[in-house]
Computed example of a mutant assay.
Amino acid sequence: MRTRYLVALCTLGLTGGLSGPVFAASDVLTYDGNGDGTITRAEFQALQKDSFKALDTDGNDFVTVAEVQALPASDGRNVTGKRLLARDGNGDGMVSEAEFLSQAPGFDRADRNNDGVLAGNELARVNKFLAKGSF
């Protein structure tokens, strides 16, 4: 279930735009390491790293289009693969964790008031998207 949640965040653009269900937790606050009810950039980056690990199904430290398309609810339109390849900075057909994280503007997109944390309506927006499961 966690996998569905992570890819949902990717789809939302919070982690940079992949689609296909992969991760489902009850909410983003799963990553609230200090328990303050907000998500900091560092906590969000932990979510992004877990997202990459969930997508890297063969554990070789790279994500390929084939891995993403093999996800249980891949949309079959190759949207997922195209979005993944957009992160392939060196053009080798695979996305490393560094490439994945360097092109993941999700925190900035989610932090609507630019205060450096995700809280309140920002978290509610993310959780609402995840509840829809509209990948």
Rank of each mutant, 00 (worst) to 15 (best):
G76F: 14
G81F: 06
V95E: 05
G35I: 00
D58I: 10
R77Y: 15
T11R: 03
L9D: 08
L18E: 02
T57D: 09
G33L: 13
K82Q: 15
D27R: 15
N127K: 08
A73H: 11
L14F: 13
G89W: 02
K49R: 15
E97K: 01
G91M: 07
V28F: 11
L71H: 08
G35T: 03
D108S: 10
L101H: 01
A8R: 05
V126Q: 07
A25L: 15
N113A: 01
Q48F: 01
N60D: 15
D115R: 06
L29F: 06
G16R: 01
A54R: 03
V95N: 00
T38A: 10
A66N: 10
E122F: 03
D115C: 04
A42H: 08
T30R: 10
T15I: 12
A66C: 03
G35F: 04
L118K: 02
N34H: 11
D75T: 07
Q103G: 08
S96E: 05
N90P: 01
G16H: 02
N114I: 10
R83C: 10
G37V: 05
R87M: 03
G106D: 05
N121P: 14
R77S: 15
K49C: 09
D108E: 11
A124I: 13
D32M: 07
G106P: 01
R125P: 03
S96A: 08
L14V: 14
L6W: 06
D36T: 08
G33F: 01
G93I: 06
D111W: 05
V65I: 08
P105H: 09
G93L: 05
V117P: 02
I39E: 01
L6H: 00
V63C: 00
G20A: 13
A98I: 07
S96M: 08
D115Y: 03
V79N: 03
D32E: 05
F62D: 09
G16P: 03
A42P: 00
L18D: 04
A73N: 11
T64G: 06
D56M: 02
L29S: 02
N127G: 09
N121E: 15
E99S: 08
F100M: 00
R4P: 07
L14Q: 05
V7A: 13
D27V: 14
T11K: 08
T80A: 15
A24K: 12
I39V: 15
L71I: 12
N121G: 14
R83I: 04
P21I: 12
V117L: 09
G116F: 09
A110Y: 05
E99M: 04
G91N: 03
T11N: 13
R83L: 10
T40Y: 01
Q103D: 11
Q69E: 15
N90L: 07
D88K: 02
S96C: 04
R109P: 01
A8M: 11
L55Q: 00
E67S: 13
L85V: 06
A98H: 08
L123T: 11
L47G: 01
S51Q: 06
D36N: 15
L71D: 03
Q45L: 12
A110F: 07
F107V: 03
G16C: 09
